[in-house]
Amino acid sequence: MSPVLQCRGLRKTFHGSVVLDSLDLDVAEHEVVALIGASGSGKSTLLRCVNLLERLDDGTIHLGGEHITDPRADADRVRRQIGIVFQAYNLFPHMTVLQNILLAPVRVHRRARAEAEQAARTWLDRVGLGNRAGDYPDRLSGGQQQRVAIVRALVNNPRLLLLDEVTSALDPELVGEVLSMVRELKGDGMTMVLATHEMGFAKQVADRVVFLDGGRVLEQGPPEQVLGDPVEARTRQFLSRIIEAGRL
């Protein structure tokens, strides 16, 4: 079966510094891939490039066989098939939780309002936020906001969900509620690529861990192998620093 996401030779530079350097990555349907690596290793940039929020310097990305980095491709149509959740939630502060979630289904996907609202409320109930539909984002905790942001992406039934360090801005006790939601999504068979610093979580939820270093895939494989018995010296060095910081 052809992969849902196929990245070939991705290159991206910012002001002369190379962030992605001939990077290759495939993601199969229902697969959960965790991107790990130091800050600046290109995790977030990779996700933003896949979502066409950044323009590549070189390389190609195919989504479900379609060449999406072709300049003739309709970027808006491509983005409709991909959900992304940001580190800082990026909810719209002038809209209620429900309005945030319904904006895309109603305006972009032209779904009937009642049907979309039904779907939104089902999701909210499922993540324990059924009673917060009418609240503005500022009145929610960070963990609640992040769960709303995930629902906002999911309600459009994306083929691929990108999670960009979704727990980095959260207090430790709020991290759990977001991670258990991601674990449930894995149970649903959602194809996901997540950039994370939570090694323990990567170990639990990922089918494959990809270690990025200097904009390249340095090492990848099953979590037990990459996190437990890495081949590359750089990976070992990175992991030992993480262990020192008490995050594994």
Binding site: R48, N51, D76, R79, G83, F86, N90, V108
Partner: peptide, 16 residues
Amino acid sequence: PSQLAAARSLGLTYRQ
């Protein structure tokens, strides 16, 4: 800009 990124990533056009 993160608000624009969030909106565009949901598939909204520039006008929307």
